[in-house]
Structures are given as structure tokens and as C-alpha cells.
Design a binder for these strands. Sequence first.
DNA 1: ATTATGATTGGCT
DNA 2: GCCAATCATAATC
Length: 193
Amino acid sequence: MTATLAGVDFATDAPQVARALIGVLVLVDGVGGRIVETEAYDREDPASHSHGGPRPRNASMFGPPAYVYVYRSYGIHWCMNFVCREAGHGAGVLIRAIEPLFGLDRMRARRGSPLDDRLLCAGPGRVGQALGITRALDGLPLDAPPFELRPAEGPVDVVTGPRIGISKAVDLPWRYGLAGSRFFSRPFRPTPR
DNA sequence: ATTATGATTGGCT
DNA sequence: GCCAATCATAATC
């Protein structure tokens, strides 16, 4: 079984999928844009919601790849992940930032009135709000409405760094970004040498 | 520019 | 009861 969508093979490791998703266009009910920032999470990863094994909340993380896992963050925000690897494993990729391209008006309406369009989808909580993500989308497949994925165009230059907002496995470089994007939730450190 | 704080709720110890 | 894959706002350097 292939589970390949928009040129991304979701049946592979979370870090690999997280990297491959950079530059991919994601739309939810026609609203969205280009993925510019992701983070990988795996079951063998203390920072992952799937770490303790299947539970009601993380059930979709243990479902088939190329499905959506939505969770509530800090009791306030809805955040969206794409499930990867194989059913039962518990791996996923958090969509942390998107370059807004389609449905800008609906994004602005949902987000309130941020002065800068740069902040529309610059962070997992903001992405959730701008794209209208709720628990109702948890467990839905990525290859059917309201979702639509389109492949990245041309070569994509990817930067990496440590993940954000976690307290365990802080050293893993499992955050990925589109080099030079100005829509990050936070900047990437200049590549060390 | 960096650092602090409140909001708000479900999941877990 | 405590903490969390966050964000907006306010205060201070």
C-alpha cells in the first residue's frame, strides 16, 4: 500500500515526512497555503503524544497514515498533525506554519484582525484557527474533502533545528522549515558551521 | 529585543 | 492538582 499523496510517502518515518511536507500546498475547504514549518513526532519519542501508547485522545495517531490528528493545545488552540508510518505505530507531523495563499479573507475573519498577514498562520495554534480546524476533523483522510494537498513545485531548500515548546527530547533536530521563508512561528537559528 | 503572565480545558498522576 | 507540541498582550531592558 502506497499512501503517497502530493508526492509525499506518508508510510515513512516522521522526520522524513516532516521534511517532505515542506513546500506542499495544503487546503482545508479551499483555505490554506504552502507548508513552511513542520515538526516530527514518533512513539519512541518522550515529547510525543503517542509516547504512552494508544489512548482515546491520540487514537488517530495510531490509525493509518495520511490521516489527520487534531489535538487541543493548552485548552485553547486546535493543532493539526498528519499521521505517518504505518497504522498502529503512532507517528505524526505537526503543521507549525503555513504561507497564506488561498482564502485570505476567511483567515483574517477567523483570526480577528492581526495587523500583519505574516501572523495569519505563523504557529500551530494560528494555523488551526486560520484554517478552521476543530476536533470534527480528527481522524479524517487527507485525500478527500475538506482536505486537499498539492505537491511542492520545484526544488525545496530545507532548514532544520530543535523543536519548540517541549520539555523532553529537546535536542532532537526534528523541526523543519522552508529556507528563507518569512512565515515561521519563530526564526531558525543560522546554520552552525 | 527579550521576558513575563493570563487564558482555559482535557488528560493524566 | 498539575501540566501542556500556544498565543496575545504588557512590561522592562
